[in-house]
């Protein structure tokens, strides 16, 4: 009897020690980094076998998505050849990308993947130019969704339309990277392409991932709040990343395809949490364009959750987010 109790005690002690060790020692992280879509790319896998290889393969996948399909600046990509040649023989992957984007665009009249002419006209990244009404009207003729046609193997552009997939590319890349990581057997991972994020599993101790939301009024490293989340994709659109100012008006890089001008609606940033990367990226831009009322309604249609920061530092968010949202900068007001 005495021995039995000793054994029980010893087993109990061993279990406690093992549990303590597992609890305290975070899983080994396996990271790979690179650059694509004009952004830094980072993939981290927590624990697991062959995770270094899986992370590196995910970064390569993102680079390939950019250089083979999405990029409008890299010669040889489908998008580049489409814009340059006005039509392109596409593979099934590219046809699907374009179809998915066009389908999403139907939900937001101000959203278009044919904003290239507007972007060139306003030249936001090259210092900025405020065009005349007639110049805007001319460019607006190119953005309509009817200017792109798809048949079984070919994509064709009309009326000077120029394709840019920057509003969805980073989220799409996160989605593809997460898919690849899961296929390779990873259970816990984090993927970022610029400011778009994809997470699954846990970074350790069963916790959620903590995602900082950039302070639209601060420096690039500053966040005003954090989200504790997993198994989702997070994207943000805002007027602070690329913009120019003229006569104390800020012109940002997000265009309303209905007006032909950069969006100005009193919002500083829109963060969207969705279960699909392309969707989260699309919605962050679409909600930003639509503004609070119609934007939140659109997000609800997709069961996505939204955090909106207004220019006056007030913060509006979807119901149910309070549990995972933590304000870290008291100069913001949560409504």
């Amino acid at each position: 009897m005495k021995n039995r109790k000793k054994i029980i005690a010893a087993v109990l002690a061993a279990v406690i020690v093992i549990a303590a060790v597992i609890w305290c020692v975070p899983p080994k992280t396996h990271s790979a980094e690179g650059y694509a879509m004009g952004s830094a790319v980072s993939v981290t896998v927590y624990g697991g076998k062959n995770s270094d290889e899986a992370a590196a393969a995910a970064v390569e996948k993102i680079k390939e998505l950019d250089s083979v399909y999405l990029s409008h600046t890299e010669e040889g990509s489908f998008t580049y050849r489409l814009n340059a040649g006005r039509e392109v023989e596409a593979d099934s992957e590219y046809l699907k990308i374009i179809k998915d984007c066009l389908l999403l665009s139907e939900d937001c009249a101000g959203f278009s993947i044919l904003c290239g002419a507007l972007e060139n006209l306003w030249n936001i990244e090259g210092g900025g130019y405020v065009p005349s009404d007639s110049e805007i009207e001319e460019a607006l003729l190119t953005v309509d969704g009817s200017n792109i046609e798809i048949d079984k193997t070919r994509v064709t552009l009309k009326n000077g339309a120029i394709v840019t997939l920057g509003a969805l590319g980073k989220g799409m890349a996160c989605q593809q990277a997460v898919n690849l990581l899961k296929e390779s057997g990873a259970k816990n991972g984090l993927c970022t392409v610029g400011g778009s994020v994809g997470v699954f599993g846990s970074p350790g101790r069963g916790k959620d991932f903590k995602i900082g939301i950039r302070n639209p009024f601060g420096e690039a490293n500053e966040y005003f709040a954090t989200l504790s989340l997993s198994d989702c994709f997070i994207s943000t659109s805002g007027n602070y990343e690329k913009y120019f100012e003229k006569d104390s008006v800020r012109y940002c890089h997000i265009f309303d395809a209905e007006t032909g001008s950069p969006v100005q609606n009193g919002l500083s940033s829109v963060t969207v949490i969705a279960d699909n990367g392309t969707l989260s990226d699309f919605l962050s831009t679409a909600v930003y364009i639509l503004g609070e009322g119609r934007g939140i309604a659109l997000a609800e249609k997709y069961n996505a959750r939204v955090i909106i920061v207004r220019d006056d530092k007030s913060v509006l968010m979807s119901e149910g987010l309070e549990d995972c949202f933590e304000l870290t900068d008291e100069s913001f007001t949560v409504l």
């Binding site: 984090l190 610029g194 400011g195 994020v197 991932f209 995602i211 943000t236």
Partner: peptide, 8 residues
């Protein structure tokens, strides 16, 4: 307490 990633 720092985040695992940033969205912007």
């Amino acid at each position: 307490n720092s985040p695992d990633a940033m969205t912007w």
